[in-house]
Design a protein around this nucleic acid. Sequence first.
DNA 1: ATCAATGCAAAGAATTTGCATCATG
DNA 2: CATGATGCAAATTCTTTGCATTGAT
Lengths: 138, 138
Amino acid sequence: MVDYTLDKLRTHGYRITQPRPVVIDVLTESHGHLTSAEILERVAAVDKSIGRASVFRVLDLLTSLAVIRPVYVEGRSPAYVMLTPEGHHSHIVCVTCGHVIELDTCVVDGLDEQLEEQYGVQLSGHLLEFYGTCAQCR
Amino acid sequence: MVDYTLDKLRTHGYRITQPRPVVIDVLTESHGHLTSAEILERVAAVDKSIGRASVFRVLDLLTSLAVIRPVYVEGRSPAYVMLTPEGHHSHIVCVTCGHVIELDTCVVDGLDEQLEEQYGVQLSGHLLEFYGTCAQCR
DNA sequence: ATCAATGCAAAGAATTTGCATCATG
DNA sequence: CATGATGCAAATTCTTTGCATTGAT
């Protein structure tokens, strides 16, 4: 996932500079969603010299390349999820405690093409978010 | 939609006070997604005496009741979408210009039950977000 | 060697909180 | 008429910008 993402950066003409691989690595390792605060923290743990601003810049870059996607889970700042190479992500959010269960299901096949035709858009991915109450909060 | 939401508030023991119906009305009228800044603006246009903080408090309340759902579309602050009474919402986000096309499709039927059984959760709704490039940005 | 990308620190947004006051049920 | 809810303004939190400097190609 890290290599795939670095290739994507190169393909788009972006350099592989210091903070970029670190942020991508943190996101990849997490296997889930991380808030910006968590990302800042983990990046700092790896390399204290990486500035806050750069982390945000990398997050913006990865978002614009559809490598990650900000989602609202809980709290004030967005959480970022990594998308599959196909651009997908699904999860369940517990609206009570904020716990997130990551899914690997993808049920939206076929609808993509239909929507592309219907609206003249070119789709690159989707996010499917279920919400409800988790087993423990019930 | 306004009445439905007000009933929901009453059911949960919340009072019907000044800012509540105004915020709900603004959200209902929009038929789409509104950022908090837009909501603040429109609420102020209706009643200048309603304070910022109260608008945020109402948004939090409606979110906790699953009447609305915050999503990150573009920019720094979340946008809020109204869910159907069944708790659903779908849209397409253009990752280039941020334009959003609201959908009324719901393709996730059946999966809900499967996930509830599989994870022991109780689901109340979902959000399906497609992203890609809109006709104008292509 | 060039210029994209960085780190820093300060500025800027956006949201929340503390508290006295108000008004719904 | 009790207390949940409010408006205000200050405080806090989060993110971005300006700019001199660095470093990947």
